[in-house]
C-alpha cells in the first residue's frame, strides 16, 4: 500500500518509505561517487548530460541486441560468414553501436560447445549484451569454468550429447566473445524476429542453450 507508513523498519531517516536508489541510507562509497562526479563536472572533465547519455547508451544495450545478431546469422549465410570472420564489423554493419569493442563470435556445432569466461577480471561483451550478470563476475564461475566446465554447465542445467567437445574461451586481454548457438530443431519456418525470441543471454555466454520453439 503506497501510503501505509506503519512499518517503521522501512522508513528512511527523513521519515519517508525507502524508494530504491534514492532513499536508502547514503553509504561511504555513494558519497565518493557523488563527490567524484561533481568534481569532474566542476573541472569540465565531463558534464551531467554526458554522464546521462552514457547511462542511456548502456541501458539501451541488452541481450536482445545479441539475439538479433544470432537470429540473423541463422537466417543469412553471408552474414554468418561475416560474423565469424569479424564479429565487430558485422555487428556494427547491423547498426549496433559497440564502441571500440573487439568482438569474436564462436560457433556451436554438433561437435563443439563454446563457453565464455574471464578468469582475471570479468570481461564481457557489454557493448553488445549490456552489463554482465552477477554470477559471471563470481569467484566460482571464474575459478571453475576453465577447470571443470562440464560441472559448471550441469549447474546451469545443461548436459551435452556424448562426444561433444567443450571449448572454453578465457577473455584475458583485448578481445570479447559471443557464442553463436546452434539453431534449434523445429525452427525451419521461422523468421529472424521469431528466432531472436529463442536466443537467451546465457546461450550467448555458453551457459545455456536457445529455447525450443
Amino acid at each position: 500500500m503506497p501510503h501505509d507508513h506503519a512499518d517503521h523498519d522501512h522508513l528512511s531517516p527523513s521519515g519517508h518509505p525507502y524508494r530504491k536508489d534514492q532513499d536508502a541510507p547514503l553509504t561511504h562509497w555513494q558519497q565518493m561517487e557523488i563527490a567524484l562526479r561533481e568534481l569532474l563536472i566542476d573541472k569540465g572533465v565531463t558534464t551531467a548530460g554526458e554522464i546521462q547519455n552514457q547511462i542511456n547508451a548502456m541501458d539501451s544495450r541488452s541481450p536482445a541486441n545479441g539475439a538479433a545478431v544470432v537470429a540473423r546469422a541463422w537466417t543469412d549465410p553471408a552474414f554468418k560468414a561475416a560474423l565469424l570472420a569479424d564479429a565487430s564489423a558485422a555487428t556494427r554493419e547491423m547498426g549496433f553501436d559497440i564502441g571500440p569493442m573487439n568482438l569474436i563470435a564462436v560457433e556451436n556445432t554438433q561437435a563443439a560447445h563454446n563457453m565464455i569466461v574471464c578468469t582475471l577480471c570479468s570481461c564481457y561483451p557489454r557493448n553488445l549484451l549490456g552489463l554482465p550478470p552477477d554470477w559471471y563476475k563470481s569467484r566460482a564461475y571464474r575459478a571453475r569454468t576453465v577447470k571443470e566446465p562440464r560441472a559448471v554447465l550441469a549447474e546451469f542445467g545443461v548436459t551435452l550429447p556424448d562426444g561433444m567437445t567443450v571449448r572454453v574461451h578465457d577473455s584475458t586481454a583485448d578481445m570479447r566473445y559471443i557464442v553463436l548457438p546452434a539453431r534449434p530443431k523445429g525452427t525451419e519456418g521461422m523468421d529472424a524476429d521469431g528466432l531472436a525470441a529463442l536466443v537467451t543471454r546465457d546461450s550467448m555466454i555458453g551457459t545455456g542453450l536457445p529455447l525450443a520453439p
Binding site: D21, Q22, A24, L26, Q30
Partner: peptide, 8 residues
C-alpha cells in the same frame, strides 16, 4: 542529508 537522494 542522510540519503542518496538528499545528498545528490
Amino acid at each position: 542529508g542522510p540519503t542518496y537522494g538528499e545528498a545528490t
